[in-house]
Amino acid sequence: MDAYLSSVLKSDKAIQVNIQIMRAFTRLRQLVLDSSELRKEIEELRNEAENKFQIIFQALDQLISVEKTPKKKIGFTAKEKKSSYGEVEKSD
């Protein structure tokens, strides 16, 4: 919130706050890049996530391939012609 406010305000104090915020984010980014242990953990998390998504995509591919196979029809099939359905025999 301070970053938004300080970037809108034009006072010297607001400008200094904005500069400090940008420096803090720059320093934080540099710390993340410099930390080999943190970088290793991030890489492991990324690999783990990719593996999990790979499993999900494989399962989705299997579901799609199963849907493409024709399904056996179930239920009752009438052997009469459709035109005779619903007709009532007339008696004189």
Score class of each variant (00 low, 15 high):
Ala3Trp: 15
Tyr4Asn: 09
Tyr4Gly: 11
Tyr4Pro: 02
Tyr4Thr: 10
Ser6Trp: 00
Ser6Met: 00
Ser7Cys: 02
Val8Thr: 14
Val8Phe: 10
Val8Trp: 14
Leu9Phe: 15
Lys10Arg: 03
Ser11Phe: 07
Ser11Gly: 14
Ala14Pro: 02
Ala14Val: 00
Ala14Thr: 01
Ile15Thr: 10
Ile15Trp: 14
Ile15His: 10
Ile15Cys: 06
Gln16Trp: 09
Gln16Ile: 07
Asn18Pro: 13
Asn18His: 13
Gln20Gly: 14
Ile21Glu: 05
Ile21Asp: 03
Ile21Gly: 03
Met22Val: 11
Met22Arg: 07
Arg23Val: 10
Ala24Asn: 13
Ala24Ile: 08
Ala24Gln: 12
Phe25Pro: 15
Leu28Glu: 15
Arg29Ala: 09
Arg29Asn: 13
Arg29Asp: 15
Arg29Thr: 12
Gln30Phe: 13
Gln30Val: 11
Leu31Thr: 09
Leu31Met: 08
Leu31Pro: 04
Leu31Val: 05
Leu33Met: 09
Leu33Asp: 15
Leu33Cys: 11
Asp34Gln: 03
Asp34Thr: 00
Ser35Ala: 01
Ser36Thr: 09
Ser36Ala: 04
Glu37Arg: 04
Leu38Phe: 00
Leu38Thr: 00
Arg39Leu: 04
Lys40Trp: 01
Lys40Met: 01
Glu41Ser: 13
Ile42Asp: 02
Ile42Lys: 01
Glu43Tyr: 02
Glu43Val: 00
Glu44Ile: 04
Glu44His: 03
Leu45Ala: 03
Leu45Tyr: 05
Arg46Ala: 09
Asn47Gly: 03
Ala49His: 09
Ala49Asp: 12
Ala49Tyr: 14
Glu50Lys: 07
Glu50His: 08
Asn51Ala: 05
Asn51Gln: 11
Phe53Gln: 11
Gln54Cys: 03
Gln54Thr: 06
Ile55Asn: 12
Ile56Val: 13
Phe57Arg: 00
Gln58Asn: 05
Gln58Ser: 02
Ala59Cys: 07
Ala59Arg: 06
Leu60Tyr: 13
Asp61Pro: 01
Ile64Phe: 14
Ile64Ala: 11
Ile64Gly: 08
Ile64Ser: 14
Ile64His: 15
Ile64Tyr: 15
Ser65Gln: 12
Val66Leu: 08
Glu67Leu: 08
Lys68Trp: 02
Thr69Cys: 07
Thr69Lys: 10
Lys71Ile: 10
Lys71Leu: 11
Lys71Glu: 15
Lys72Asp: 14
Lys73Ala: 09
Ile74Cys: 04
Ile74Trp: 07
Ile74Tyr: 09
Gly75Ser: 00
Gly75Met: 00
Gly75Val: 00
Phe76Asn: 04
Thr77Ala: 05
Lys79Gln: 04
Lys79Ser: 05
Lys81Asp: 11
Lys81Tyr: 06
Lys82Gly: 08
Lys82Arg: 13
Lys82Ile: 06
Lys82Met: 10
Lys82Tyr: 08
Ser83Arg: 00
Ser83Tyr: 01
Ser83Val: 02
Ser84Trp: 01
Ser84Phe: 02
Tyr85Asn: 08
Tyr85Phe: 07
Gly86Glu: 00
Glu87Pro: 01
Glu87Gly: 01
Glu89Phe: 13
Glu89His: 12
Ser91Glu: 15
Ser91Met: 06
Ser91Arg: 03
Asp92Glu: 07
